[in-house]
Design a protein around this nucleic acid. Sequence first.
DNA 1: GTCTATAAGTTGATAGAC
DNA 2: GTCTATCAACTTATAGAC
Lengths: 204, 204
Amino acid sequence: MKEKVKSKDVLIETASRLFKVRGYCGVGLNDIIEESGIPKGSLYYYFPEGKEQLAIAAIDNTKKLVMADIQRVFNENSHVGTSNLSTSNPIDAFQAYVYELSRVFGEGGDPIGSPIGTIAGEKHSTSEPIRLACEATFKDWQSIYTEKFLEADYAEQQAKSLATVFHALTEGGILLALTMKSGKPLETIAEQIPSLFAKELVEK
Amino acid sequence: MKEKVKSKDVLIETASRLFKVRGYCGVGLNDIIEESGIPKGSLYYYFPEGKEQLAIAAIDNTKKLVMADIQRVFNENSHVGTSNLSTSNPIDAFQAYVYELSRVFGEGGDPIGSPIGTIAGEKHSTSEPIRLACEATFKDWQSIYTEKFLEADYAEQQAKSLATVFHALTEGGILLALTMKSGKPLETIAEQIPSLFAKELVEK
DNA sequence: GTCTATAAGTTGATAGAC
DNA sequence: GTCTATCAACTTATAGAC
């Protein structure tokens, strides 16, 4: 496999970064070609269908980067066998991931591979291809969460539900962090993860 | 107080509705004047600073509508004194509100007064006035949640943290519902509310 | 106060030179 | 395959008639 495809990759990376911060409509093709240094003609050579096709490639790229990031954090924070019970505890892993998000979104840094939430919010009703790309991304992320809950012996339906809850928490938390220009909301959420997802509980 | 201000109100209502679904950049002033039937000259008469000023008015309008809606649902679902303990239980109220959101965002209906999340996601980095309006809105919504937790005798810091968590859950849940074109994610979240926010718990 | 016509600039997209 | 020049449509905003 040769590395001829560099221009295409630069376009995808640049687009991912800009869309993430300013959304789909907020970024013009002129911004992308200026920032990437790749002329408009080349953009349309690699993406003949234009902006929408580039956006979908960027969403797909973000999907994979985020999946790898989740897996990495989960692997670094799994304690199979070290617990005093037989099953692994997913709570530490989820908490570690939200703490990571708080670091990444806290100080206006430029996180590689991050939220497609902004694009989803804008385009769900005006571009079905983009909506489908976002939907597929969300489902893939949630599968990882579901898998983690299943590993800890949650029932299948409960694992799926908790994965939805956790995903909503991260998307909402990222939105709050960006809006407040602070990592605090995500930190707060991370702190609450253990009590929110405690497995056994007794009603008061 | 006369009702001369009708044109201005129609503009704000129309803008709120369109921004909510398609975001700030996704809606042109032409869309707003076409949909509202109010000519562009009048728009600039009421909002001399243009689109940004209109958007901030729309955000403020949405803030108030949503606050009223939260209060209404909370009042309809509070059980002070009917419980077998002395304090009111906020969990039913929060659950009822998320069920309401699932109905409103489920079938692509046109909910009056709804998420500014899309605008916040797009413009937090490119318009400080809009970011501040969104931040103020989020803080006001969270105060209602905090108040509800305080009523149920949560400690002040814990009440604030749980309010952040609940708010993130709703914003994330709305994004998932819109992206999936389904009320299911919000329904799932509503179902999980009781176990997530159960007050007393025992570690396994 | 209400509305029309238009300005000045930007958008996504294309044609065609090299 | 790579890039430049240009297009028609659209954007926000304004000037000024009524």
